[in-house]
Computed example of a mutant assay.
Amino acid sequence: MPGSLIKIKEILDNISPSERKVAKYIIENPDSVSNLPIGELAKRIGTSEATIVRLCKILDFKGYKDFRISITKDIASMKKEDEEEQYTDVKPGDSLESIIQNISYNNKKSIDNTLEIISFDEINKAVDAIVSADRIEFFGIGASFIIAYDAMQKFSRINKIALSFPDPHLQIASAANLKKEDVAVAISYSGETKDTYDSIKMAKESGATTISITKFGQNPISNICDIKLFVSAPEISIRSGAMSSRIAQLNVIDILFSAVTSKQFNEVKKYLQNTRKSIREKKIK
């Protein structure tokens, strides 16, 4: 699904009823929206122009004109996608072949859709912050901790002081000792995990630069962070939805790690060589 409509679907549950009315109309009638001036659109929906402009701002557009241009560009992509598969849930009793295809497609689609909504400016800010950081802490609970731990492992390979704790009490205690030269990264697809919120809030109060990796839109964690990175994943009933969001977040971690490594390659090359050498020596001979 094209970027504008992905963003709208991600924020549906977190906007006002009047904004939701506009959002649903746009999702159902993208072709007509691309040809309508704001006054005519407001009349058709039965809402105010101000509500439409407010929704456009929530979606990170300067105004309705920019949003309409984006929708127009998206329509061609939508027609192509109509010919392809959509997100598909795994159903009880599915064949193994169907499960393999659905999970693989959903994971791939979550990465593709994340690429549509991710901000290159925000990624660049995050990379610069990590490059300059004395210390990086990754906060996540449950499945999100696995992503945080993966990030810690990656950045440790290039000699960054990177930490991640599975215990939320250790997370918040460590966050309290961060300083302005440090970076804290909060990982939570919903953006509403309380322990992660408490830790990133403490990190911000301690002066650290804060980065969030959440679903698109307004949520408590991204709202308080300095740098906001968004991912997209399907909202489907079986755990394949959570699996896809994990894949999308891991992909963002890989992007950050690769960009930091590229930017500091001459400095970190020896550390990468050291880690590769140590891994080779641990293999069974």
Rank of each mutant, 00 (worst) to 15 (best):
A143I: 08
N251S: 09
I146G: 03
K65D: 15
V22I: 08
Q153W: 11
F216Y: 10
F67Y: 14
V183K: 11
T196I: 00
S119D: 03
R54E: 08
E281Y: 02
I52Y: 08
F230D: 01
S16Y: 12
Q249S: 10
A148H: 01
Y64D: 11
T88R: 10
F61P: 15
I221F: 05
S156L: 06
Y149E: 15
D66N: 14
D254W: 07
V185T: 04
K79T: 13
G142H: 11
P234C: 00
Y64F: 14
F67D: 13
K21G: 04
R239L: 10
T114P: 12
R276Q: 14
V53R: 04
N274K: 12
N266P: 03
P2Q: 12
K65Y: 14
E281P: 04
S199M: 06
I279L: 15
I99S: 09
A203H: 07
N223S: 15
Q218F: 02
I58G: 07
K269A: 10
I158F: 00
K57E: 08
S4N: 11
K263R: 14
V268T: 04
I103L: 14
D167F: 02
A203F: 05
E181C: 01
N102P: 03
N107D: 15
R20Y: 02
Q101F: 01
N223F: 05
I100C: 07
I187E: 00
D254V: 03
S77T: 13
S95Y: 12
D167S: 07
L12M: 05
K21D: 03
E85T: 10
K283I: 12
P92G: 10
D150C: 07
I247S: 09
M78Y: 15
T210R: 09
F67R: 13
A129E: 07
I117S: 01
I38F: 03
S199A: 15
S232C: 06
Y87E: 10
D167L: 08
S156W: 00
F230H: 00
E267M: 05
D226E: 08
D254A: 13
R135M: 06
K277Y: 14
L5W: 08
Q218Y: 01
I146M: 01
E181H: 15
T275Y: 05
L96C: 14
T114H: 06
A184V: 07
N251I: 07
S206I: 06
D112G: 00
P166S: 10
R280I: 08
S262M: 13
S199E: 03
D60R: 14
H169M: 09
I69V: 13
D195P: 01
V90A: 06
L96A: 11
I71Q: 12
V252L: 04
S278Y: 05
L229F: 11
I6A: 08
Q101D: 15
K65H: 10
T214E: 02
K285E: 10
I136K: 11
F61D: 13
E281A: 14
I141C: 04
D60G: 03
A186H: 09
D31N: 06
L96M: 13
A133R: 08
I161Y: 09
K79I: 14
S244W: 01
T193R: 02
N223V: 05
K215T: 04
I255V: 11
E97R: 12
F120E: 09
V127E: 02
D74Q: 11
N266L: 08
V53K: 07
N124C: 10
P92C: 09
K109S: 10
P220E: 04
I11E: 05
L36P: 02
R54W: 04
V183T: 01
I141H: 06
